[in-house]
Amino acid sequence: MFGEGLNIFNMLRIVVDITLVWYVFYKLIMLLRGTKAIQLLKGIFVVLFIYLISYLLNLQTVQVMIEQVIVWGPVAVIILFQPELRRALEQIGRGSFFSRNRRSEEEIFNQTIDAIVKSCTYMGKRRIGALITIESETNMGDYIETGIPIQGQLTHQLLTNIFVPNTPLHDGAVIINQNEIVAAACYLPLSESPFISKELGTRHRAAMGISEVSDALTIIVSEETGSISCTRNGELHRDIDQDKLVEILRDNLGSNFKKTPTPKNWNWRGRKK
């Protein structure tokens, strides 16, 4: 009986040991992702693979050379990648190394909303026309291909600058996916609905058109009046203020960052039908 309990304890200890090692490696990879250090990591695997091949084929000269690389490699890594190592140690010191990604996702979510609201408010006050489509579950690839690739991080400065009049990208729609401006100067389908007010221009018709064929949320800034409007699922909501825009963005963009589909029984304002 005592032996069985000891065996279970040893198994649990091994599972915890492996889990901790896996978690640390996972966090290190997430930390290095997007930096030049990730290329180093790939290079290390290539070197180890070559060393294994040379060992199996008994390539002694190659083995000696790679052994020297392995011996002196850690010193070279410390010298060449001081910034990345320092950043990792700083994160460990702040406790953020072992924190969950949910916090960072929430920060990105808030920054995305803040950038869109600031940009729309700025353009509205100066009557700069804008058409901003935010991709949701429906793929926007066909419409992205009609525009100019941007693939830049969303900031209110970049978003505003795109719509400055008499610039190459100001005419057409900007398509956003999460916190990335994917493309600008995109062509959207115009709505043929007879119920759209005659006083609304091409931007509003394009916003209604894309809302009829996708679940994307589209924001329009009127060049004539400076007013802000939104469309989704074939519905148009006109003359919204800054607080209402924040509410609409929070209600409709949460699923984009949580990677979960929006329930079908919810309307475009984020409330149940």
Rank of each mutant, 00 (worst) to 15 (best):
V64W: 13
V64R: 07
V64E: 02
V64D: 09
V64N: 13
V64K: 12
M65R: 00
M65C: 03
M65G: 07
I66F: 01
I66C: 09
I66T: 13
I66K: 03
I66H: 04
I66W: 06
E67Q: 07
E67D: 11
E67L: 09
Q68Y: 03
Q68K: 00
Q68L: 02
Q68H: 00
V69I: 15
V69Q: 08
I70T: 10
I70F: 05
I70P: 02
I70W: 03
I70M: 03
V71Q: 03
V71A: 08
V71K: 01
V71H: 02
V71T: 06
V71G: 02
V71D: 08
W72K: 01
W72R: 11
G73N: 00
G73S: 09
G73R: 04
G73I: 03
G73T: 08
G73W: 06
G73Y: 01
G73E: 02
P74T: 15
P74M: 12
P74L: 12
P74C: 10
V75M: 13
V75R: 05
A76L: 15
A76F: 14
V77A: 12
V77I: 15
V77H: 11
I78W: 14
I78Q: 13
I78Y: 11
I78K: 14
I78T: 08
I78E: 09
I79L: 15
I79C: 10
I79Y: 10
I79H: 01
L80I: 10
L80A: 14
L80K: 13
L80T: 11
L80P: 04
F81Y: 10
Q82I: 13
Q82T: 13
Q82P: 02
Q82V: 14
Q82D: 03
P83Q: 14
P83M: 07
P83N: 09
P83Y: 09
P83D: 00
E84M: 12
E84H: 08
E84Q: 11
E84N: 04
E84W: 06
E84D: 06
L85D: 10
L85V: 14
L85N: 11
L85T: 15
R86Q: 02
R86E: 02
R87M: 06
R87A: 08
R87N: 02
R87S: 06
A88M: 13
A88Q: 09
A88L: 10
A88K: 02
A88D: 06
L89Q: 04
L89A: 12
E90H: 07
E90S: 06
E90F: 04
Q91Y: 08
Q91N: 07
Q91I: 07
I92L: 05
I92M: 00
I92H: 00
G93L: 05
G93Q: 05
G93K: 05
G93F: 08
G93N: 03
R94N: 09
R94M: 01
R94T: 15
R94G: 05
R94Y: 12
R94P: 03
R94F: 11
